[in-house]
């Protein structure tokens, strides 16, 4: 399984770090891409990740109102919802896309959410719908 996680530099990446420092276990399938803000996560990257074989994609960011750049996560939520609805519409398994608000102190939450997401992805199995094969 490959789970690509876009983690914002200020909250979620620190949260993931806290999970590590606290020696909380979360699935090794999670691969974190650090971005400066969840608002810069382009839907194209998410689709690209699925194309390159990701089984799940998580966008994580600060809680609403806590964004380091004031409003970045509002944009993230908007883009996420639009993409998710569209994916649902074309029949893609949209559960594979997840948005998670995790602050720097929520290491435990981060680990737990990743655990449950991994379980969900395992149930769904390998993502084949958008995976690129020559």
């Amino acid at each position: 399984m490959k789970i690509v996680t876009f983690a914002c530099n200020w909250c979620s990446y620190a949260g993931a770090d806290l999970a590590g420092v606290s020696r909380l276990k979360y699935p090794e399938d999670v691969r974190i891409v650090r971005v400066m803000c969840s608002g810069m996560v382009n839907p194209a990257w998410i689709l690209r990740a699925f194309r390159q074989g990701a089984d799940g994609v998580v966008i994580t960011g600060c809680h609403p109102g806590d964004c380091h750049y004031m409003v970045g996560n509002y944009y993230a939520k908007k883009r996420y919802l639009l993409l998710k609805e569209l994916m649902k519409f074309v029949g893609f398994e949209d559960e594979r896309l997840k948005l998670l608000w995790a602050s720097a102190s929520e290491g435990k939450k981060f680990a737990e959410e990743m655990d449950s997401f991994k379980k969900l992805i395992e149930q769904l199995g390998e993502q084949k719908q958008l995976r690129w094969t020559p």
Binding site: P43, A44, R51
Partner: peptide, 11 residues
């Protein structure tokens, strides 16, 4: 598949 991605992005 690539076409799907293209059209989703465009829209």
């Amino acid at each position: 598949r690539d076409n799907t991605i293209y059209h989703l992005l465009r829209v």
